[in-house]
């Protein structure tokens, strides 16, 4: 099982390199942080919760393999109907693509086209995505959150102390790294207009910083730094910020999420709108990631505590 998860992590890395090769920087960025980093970790925690060895397979692996081959073959056959890669008369290049590419600088005033498409032209879709993430956070909370007892915390404290002593090198290196990781998250957040980056990636990097801290100093310590109620509130706040930007633009006489009316000058309005909604996205993503991590790890520690085999 472990090996499978590791290979999935490698797959994430390969994917991201592939996106880089295809010039899709922002996608690669997201894949790098989410696909290769966080999801590997979460899968591992899941494996830790459910047990490392799988049960005896009850179905025939050969059948599954054949099914996969057939489906894959059909899908590849399906691609024959698609226009050739990079062909100029593909439907993608006929529809709104040229408009986004050629006019976004004048209309939005943001050098990074992906950001303007994501946050402005497709603002509604992104709002939906943020809500999905928020819902996922709520779902995880509903399924996995456990009532914490104070004595558990005390036991965990003891373990974490031993972690410190055992990992002197890691402790010092990580202590030095954490401020830079967190600041880098903010940097990615606010430079989404100019280069690859934006709320999604920033949120994940921020969460990665916190997760790093939690892994070394223990979940209890991380929960004291950023408490559960605060994260829950922040995740809701993110969606709220996003939504309110839309509402304010409606109040100012535009349609929902039409940033042109946010300021006197349409470009400035777009700029402000994108900044704000990216902030909302970042808040939600970061806090939901942290919530998921807290719940997963808290749950597995809870299970272990119940079995009396805490490390």
């Amino acid at each position: 099982m472990f090996a499978v998860v590791m290979l999935a992590g490698i797959y994430g890395l390969v994917c991201a390199s592939f996106f880089v090769a295809m010039d899709a920087v922002d996608v690669a960025f997201t894949e790098a942080s989410i696909g290769a980093g966080i999801s590997t970790l979460l899968m591992l925690t899941t494996v830790a919760m459910t047990g490392r060895t799988d049960h005896e397979a009850t179905h025939k692996p050969l059948m599954a393999f054949v099914a996969v081959i057939v489906t894959g073959g059909l899908l590849i056959y399906g691609t024959f109907d698609m226009p050739y890669f990079g062909s100029a008369d593909a439907p993608v290049h006929q529809h709104v693509g040229p408009h986004y590419i050629y006019d976004s600088i004048q209309e939005i005033g943001v050098p990074n086209m992906v950001t303007s498409v994501l946050a402005s032209y497709r603002g509604f879709d992104t709002f939906g995505e943020v809500t999905v993430i928020f819902t996922a956070g709520i779902g995880v909370l509903a399924l996995l959150s456990v009532a914490r007892r104070p004595e558990d915390d005390a036991v965990m404290e003891a373990i974490n102390d031993s972690m410190h002593e055992k990992h002197l090198i890691l402790r010092i290196v990580i202590k030095t790294m954490i401020p830079f990781i967190v600041l880098y998250a903010f940097y990615v957040q606010f430079h989404g207009d100019y280069g690859p980056g934006g709320g999604f990636q920033a949120g994940v990097i921020f969460a990665a910083g916190i997760i790093l801290y939690a892994m070394l100093f223990g979940l209890g310590a991380a929960r004291r730094v950023i408490t559960q109620p605060v994260v829950q509130m922040l995740s809701a706040l993110g969606v709220l910020v996003y939504g309110s930007v839309g509402l304010v633009s409606m109040l100012n006489g535009g349609s929902f999420l039409d940033y042109n009316v946010l300021a006197a000058d349409p470009i400035a309005g777009q700029h402000l709108g994108i900044l704000l909604i990216e902030l909302g996205v970042g808040l939600t993503v970061a806090s939901v990631m942290i919530i998921i991590f807290y719940s997963f790890v808290g749950r597995s520690q809870f299970q272990k505590a119940n079995k009396g085999e805490l490390l």
Partner: peptide
Amino acid sequence: IVVFITHRMDVVDHESQ
């Protein structure tokens, strides 16, 4: 914000510098 968070984390001391 970063300084605040790291202060709460208690990671700013002689060891981290």
